[in-house]
Simulated scan of single mutants.
Amino acid sequence: MAEVKPADQALDAALALLAAGEVVAIPTETVYGLAGDATSGQAVARIFEAKGRPRFNPLIAHVASMAMAENFALFDPLSARLAEKFWPGPLTLVLPLREAFGIHPLVTAGLDTIALRMPRGFASGLIEALGRPLAAPSANRSGRVSATTAAAVAEDLGDRIRLVVDGGPTPVGVESTILKVDGGKLRLLRPGGVTAEEIEQAAGVTVERAGDAPIEAPGMMTSHYAPGAAVRLDAREVYDGEALLAFGPVRASGAGNAAAVQNLSEGGDLREAAANLFSFLKHLDRSSVATIAVEPIPFDGLGEAINDRLRRAAAPRDAMT
């Protein structure tokens, strides 16, 4: 079972686990978060694994300073003004990614935007001490109520993680507001700890609701990560001219004829495969093939998430909404 440590005694233990690629449940002002190093694919894969029945939705990357945020995202004057007003605090800004960013693609789910937030309290000090952003969705199993106390986290996730940092009940108690800033427009993707009215007052711009507009978050679209090449799933034979996304030690028939090969995990480790998925798909896409053949991948554990993402990658492009 997870060890529960008071926040004033937990910094060193949390840092050691994060540096080793583990995940830690931490208090924020909104809800407790399940935190991992946002630059480490293994750590982010552990987040999805611990939450259970995972989907490769984008995660919020939590930062300790504006300088850290600007390493990963492009701020226009409006988004900078909102950050100055509401950070640290329960507002998440969805912003364009910088080129050559260091955030692992599992965090952004392959999008060209990143969701950033600057938390208060223990989380801020932990990020500053680590020197890297933390990806941190709510610390609960998928589909369950978000945890606002350390006891709730331990009850839900205690058999899946090693440390819960107890900072007392979270003061906000609901997740952060998620706001997309795009060309001087503000779109509310999720209501939360900062109201639309507060945002409008600070920005001088009307906040638009997402409503029935096309969904932009991965995991909600029929086709999400769509490489230039077509994607052919459950391939047991590789045709001439195809690239191969392999898994495990046994190859599909004709693999020797593949134009390019990337193996998600030669040992069949689903966590390793999850961490490699987006980068390996992009690598094969750069080989200029018409089709990427994908060997069968088990559906258990993280395999469910891997197959979900691959299914969306293989969906007809006119299904993208």
Rank of each mutant, 00 (worst) to 15 (best):
E3T: 15
A14F: 10
A14S: 13
P27L: 09
L34Y: 03
L34Q: 01
T39M: 09
G41E: 14
V44R: 01
G52F: 09
R53W: 08
R55Q: 14
P58F: 07
I60C: 02
A64T: 03
A64V: 05
A69W: 03
L74C: 08
R81Q: 13
L82P: 00
K85L: 00
T92P: 02
T92M: 08
L93F: 03
L106W: 04
T108K: 00
A109P: 12
G110S: 05
D112E: 15
A115K: 00
G121H: 00
F122A: 07
R132N: 03
L134K: 03
R144P: 00
S146C: 13
A147R: 01
T149C: 11
A150P: 05
A150Y: 05
A154Q: 12
V164G: 01
G167W: 12
T170Y: 04
I178Q: 08
L179N: 07
L179H: 06
K180D: 15
V181R: 01
G184E: 09
G204W: 13
A210C: 11
A210L: 15
A210H: 10
P218F: 08
P218I: 04
M220Q: 14
M220L: 14
T222A: 14
S223W: 11
Y225W: 14
A226V: 14
A226E: 13
A229R: 02
A243Y: 00
A246V: 08
V250G: 03
S253A: 15
N257P: 02
A259D: 06
S265G: 03
G268K: 11
L277E: 11
L284S: 05
V289E: 06
A290N: 12
I297L: 07
I297A: 04
A305T: 04
N307M: 11
R312V: 04
A314C: 05
D318M: 04
M320G: 12
